[in-house]
Design a protein around this nucleic acid. Structure first.
Ligand SMILES: [Zn+2]
Ligand SMILES: [Zn+2]
Ligand SMILES: [Zn+2]
Ligand SMILES: [Zn+2]
Lengths: 132, 132
DNA sequence: ACCCTTGTTGATAATGATTGTCAAAACCCT
DNA sequence: AGGGTTTTGACAATCATTATCAACAAGGGT
């Protein structure tokens, strides 16, 4: 049976009140900064649980860290600013269908997909142009 | 100036003669098995170079390892068996268009995308079912 | 062919994220 | 409240990757 602890709630709330993706380490630091004595291993476990229950979205940063984000609802993908971390959720029914059929067409089962777009958001694009 | 060493060639060839994606560690083991005394750090460096020169394709496995593959030509995506590493290249014009328009619609520039499908290939699916 | 400058190698240590351990603490049902 | 069971958290262990740095070798000039 799955029990309710203040730790899990703390992680869930810290995650929801975070804009964009965070690493487990990052969330742990945030929580500590707010005075919580929660342990690092617990943050890892809570995030893994949230992700496997579909309450959190996870992806791997380009340098191999696992990043998490509170999942609003349903399955979706992300448009991420590689400079400031701003994240926009994007729907992609077409992509879902494509992934499913592409996997099936080659006999693959238990298909999961990684679909994310990285770029520079409007602000960062302007900033980059100005710094030119 | 960039020099030519047998090590770099060895990595390039080992990579080309590999079906699917390999990790640096995996390639190093392969080379050792073939009698090469090449060092692990060198394999990492060579793969990173190949990737940055566009001669190799790199992606991150779901558990955070960096995987490499000899890059054939052109832009494409992959259907990867998470058990045996078998890789199938898949084209996806629809996805390319979607990625482009989704980024533009939110003011993002310099968009790149990560689109990969992981699953169990036909053989591994059968094997998994048999082991049940 | 020889030398010299400089990029490259590789054994090993260091890093850093993530996971395993396990006794103590917390939960929850009765 | 009591007790079986789950969860926690400090700490050790793992594991991929990167940094070190002295020894080495490629290749341009002589
Ligand atoms: Zn931005
Ligand atoms: Zn999807
Ligand atoms: Zn397979
Ligand atoms: Zn593409």
């Amino acid at each position: 049976m799955k029990r309710n602890t203040w730790q899990r709630e703390a992680v869930r709330e810290a995650l929801s009140s975070t804009e964009g993706f965070v690493s487990a380490q990052g969330l742990h630091m945030t929580l500590h900064g707010a005075g919580s004595p929660i342990g690092l291993a617990t943050v890892y476990r809570a995030l893994a649980d949230l992700a496997s229950e579909g309450d959190a979205d996870s992806l791997q940063s380009p340098d191999g860290e696992s990043l998490y984000r509170a999942c609003t609802t349903g399955h979706h993908h992300h448009l991420i600013c590689r400079n400031c971390g701003l994240t926009v959720e994007i729907e992609a029914d077409a992509v879902e269908q494509w992934a499913k059929t592409a996997a099936a067409a080659h006999g693959f089962t238990q298909a999961q997909h990684v679909v994310d777009v990285f770029g520079l958001c409007e602000n960062c694009t302007r900033a980059a142009a100005a710094a030119e």
